[in-house]
Each structure stands twice: as C-alpha cells, then as structure tokens.
Design a protein around this nucleic acid. Sequence first.
DNA 1: AAAACAATTCGATATTTCTAGAAATATACT
DNA 2: AGTATATTTCTAGAAATATCGAATTGTTTT
Lengths: 96, 96
Amino acid sequence: MQIEMAANQLAELGHVTRLEIYRILVRAGHHGLAVSAIQEKLDIPGSTLSHHISRLVKVGLLSQTREGRVLRCQAQYQELERLIDFLSEECCKGCD
Amino acid sequence: MQIEMAANQLAELGHVTRLEIYRILVRAGHHGLAVSAIQEKLDIPGSTLSHHISRLVKVGLLSQTREGRVLRCQAQYQELERLIDFLSEECCKGCD
DNA sequence: AAAACAATTCGATATTTCTAGAAATATACT
DNA sequence: AGTATATTTCTAGAAATATCGAATTGTTTT
C-alpha cells in the first residue's frame, strides 16, 4: 500500500463518529447494516451521517449496496487488513 | 484503548507528512533521530515540521528528549501496537 | 558577552472539515 | 398519479487544520 492511500484511510478513521460507524459495521458482519440502522445506533442527523459514510466509502473502507429504498453498508474487511499490514510493517522495521 | 484516543491517534497519522515522519522514526529504531535529521529527509520548513511533530507527540505516538541543543524524537512503538490491537479487535469481531 | 546553532512559538492566510437544515432524488406502496 | 420512506445533495456558517516567514527561546562555542 502506498503511503498516500494509507494516510487517506487513517484520516477517515481518525474521527470519532466515523470510527464508530466503521466499528458498528465491522461488528455487524459481512451482511452489513442499513444506513437507517446505523442512524438509530448513533442518533445523529441523516445528512451528517451520510456525509461521514460517503467519506468512508470514498477511501474504500466501506461499500454500499442498494436494496430497494434501503442502502446497506458493509465494512471492507480486506482494506482494514491492508491498512493494518502497512502499519505493522512500519512498526516492525527498526524494532529490536 | 478507548475510541476517542484511537480516533485522535489515527487522525494524526492520517496526514502524509506526519505519516512519513512517523515512518522515518519507526525505521530509525529506539534511538530515534534529531529534528534536523528528519528535516533533511523531508525538506520542509522547520516551523511546519515542528508543528507536525508536536501533534504526534501530543497523542503519544512520539517522544522527545533534549540532548544539548538537539532534540531527538523517538517513535513510541507500544502506542502503535496498542492502536493496531484496537483496529484488529474491531476487525475480527463479526468476521466469519 | 557575543555569535552560532537547533528548534519552537507567533502570527497571518488559505484551505478543509464539520454540522445540520432544507431541498432533491430514488424507490416502493396504494 | 400521488404519497410515504430512505437517503443524498446542496448550502452555509463555524471551527479546525495546514503552511511558512519572522521572531523567540534554549544551548553551545568562541
């Protein structure tokens, strides 16, 4: 993973609301959750939630699939894995 | 680790220049590097560099020790480990 | 004490991000 | 077609961040 991509993903996770969204979706499993279900858990305005979700989607940490009028969001586990790998590599280089 | 701390650290790593600073220091080993040595590698103004370093210090990802007129910066490996652990836990909950 | 060096703090500007209400879009139901 | 539901896009103000030159602080050397 190139450093720009890593920095972008880290920046998006570096906001409490977005990290909470991501955590909720990770824990929800591959099936994911509807936007409305996330909103119920977080209790924030829809426009704010939508803004944060779209940022996470933009960097590849989430995906969305439409099912009728419901949009389901899913964590992209492999992206987090790649990000963790990047951080781990950085960490272990130079470690005694 | 509580989510606010994780978000703070992620946000600080979520900037290309800071992530580069952190990577350089991780790879430099426990002994760390002087600010001036980092500056040579990155070629950015001192005031900008100082600003970014202080942000990384503030969230505990770096420490600094003065040696005469040189300030040496060191990566706090255990903080990155804790952050990675936080992310890994979030990831594996709900994973099939 | 003065000059040189390392790094930070100050100050100012430009840019981005956050938040949320209002309006718009997309889909489903009657 | 019209209404309800789900979600996004638009808009705008407030707050935070990024950048960097100039001034400042702390330390060493002469």
